[in-house]
Design a protein around this nucleic acid. Sequence first.
DNA 1: TTGAAAGCGCTAACAG
DNA 2: CTGTTAGCGCTTTCAA
Lengths: 341, 341
Amino acid sequence: MAGIEEVARRAGVSPSTVSRALRGRSGVSERTRRRITGIAEELDYSISRSASGLATGRTMCVGVIVPFVWRWFFGQIIGGAEQVLRAAGYDMMLYTTGDLESRERFFRELPVRGRVDAVLVLSMDLTEQEADRLRGLDLPLALVGHEAEGFSSVHIDDRQGTRLAVQHLINLGHRDIAMIQGLEPKPLGAIAPIIRREAFQQTLSDNDIEPRPEWMVPGAFSIGAGERAMDQLLATSTPPTAVFTYADELAMGALRSMRRHGRSVPQDMSIVGFDDHEMSEYVELTTVAQPVRAQGATAAQLLMNQLTSGSRETSVLPMPIELVVRGSTGPPRSSAELSGD
Amino acid sequence: MAGIEEVARRAGVSPSTVSRALRGRSGVSERTRRRITGIAEELDYSISRSASGLATGRTMCVGVIVPFVWRWFFGQIIGGAEQVLRAAGYDMMLYTTGDLESRERFFRELPVRGRVDAVLVLSMDLTEQEADRLRGLDLPLALVGHEAEGFSSVHIDDRQGTRLAVQHLINLGHRDIAMIQGLEPKPLGAIAPIIRREAFQQTLSDNDIEPRPEWMVPGAFSIGAGERAMDQLLATSTPPTAVFTYADELAMGALRSMRRHGRSVPQDMSIVGFDDHEMSEYVELTTVAQPVRAQGATAAQLLMNQLTSGSRETSVLPMPIELVVRGSTGPPRSSAELSGD
DNA sequence: TTGAAAGCGCTAACAG
DNA sequence: CTGTTAGCGCTTTCAA
């Protein structure tokens, strides 16, 4: 491990000149710079990030917090963010906070402290307390999924997306519509699930449909949870004719449940998802598409902007959504029969 | 940002004592430790990782290299690894090298240098040159997926897995068997795809079946690639009756192609995948299951062992595999007709 | 354009 | 059990 001193000695200059030369700072003659670069390469010199970090106070590292890595959705966002960070010369520190324990631990110990120059929170609904902990870091902060004081933010219009989905079902003739929610019974200050639930109920009301409490079932975030939720709906005395789900993965679980019960989609049940998961096309799921990679990339870019400008000004960027109609939605059986009469 | 000196002053001790106390080192009275801990908490003191890293030479950080984050398979492995690293007090630095450009860039610049205490390579087939670059780091190294000199390694028996899958097809009565490979035309020293291809051909030979070159189609790693591959197979003059695919995601693409062509599975075509993707159960895919999270976790554990023991001894751990038979495989139509006669 | 010197905040070896 | 001292390897004034 050759140090900067070694490079300096061989180049016949001082360490400061090497430092300047290697980082492209001005104040070094082109000739000297070239010589230094050559020798550094020859020696396979690589800077000590710890030393550099200690001296400058910057780590050239961004902390990314995400509930899970193994969901397609999060993987995509992370990928988008990483690309931007890498291009700007930053490395990415990954923290997953999927289960309650690791989440609490993260916000208690705040392992990003002193490790990163900025923090990117991906699709996680922060409690006010958690957001506060992060603000206390006094670093540029960004958020994908919703807005929060002190964070730059990139997000879609959850209300509008929900409306698109539900109105689509209503337009097809459905009136008995359930929702598989993305919400644990005890939310941690989650906001998107709440917005979508409210928008769901609002859209029904706007169409003079009375929301039915037993048709609002919890779903968490897995295929299995979606399956159980649909099982539950099918077990009610009068099952709905259509279901709006919080996420495509829940919808896929719902599809699985339908298949297991020998019911067909959309004849026996219309299903709409949210996200436009890469598999959704395959299972012919009607869904609300949102740009996923782009949200990660954009949020990372906002962070980079703050970092280079040195400003602490946050910004908010809305992202487009779109209803993608596929085979999982159709008119309810009753209306089909009626029209057949 | 209170420093260690501030804490020391308030506690009426020296910085070294604070350092010892906070890191749980011996040689501090319980009373003093408690007092220091209290004050540190009160001041919201957090250690400067750069300074600590510079002083100790350790970063408490592990570099994880992975082709993509957005594949279920990789997400799972990362998740498994992260859990183990976090528990051991290490943070995780993530590097994705999915496309050629970022891969070359990574191995050229080696951004892990001076940033991490160990490197974990997940399911990436390294070229000898790339492995060399990593070995030059002189850090503990681990690999998931295959073996390499100087790396601890966790992997399944690809040959055996392939044999399980292909023999299953043969036992069902298939003799016209194709393979959708996980191999780009110009491999980068990839080894698992080669092993599986060879094992595929060997298994056929062992059963006196002549492998047919036009039935060996390339597949890369996406659902789309699997779909195109199956399109290609269906377009041959005499399509096979069964297909073994390199990965479940390719198999899902193959299923999509079948559906698009109005063919049914397994009547018109039996399909076997590899991995046991979480969606595979849903699409009723017969597959070779391998532990995924566990491989990431185990590899991380091997690294932790090396780090704590300080030894540079590498170890190799085989992981179990299992054929999971679901609805995507059955006897070939001809044999079904014969038995019906 | 370059060099000398003074840290950045922590740890570790050695004394006490 | 605790303090003193001397760096870890780089950056950054300030002076030349």
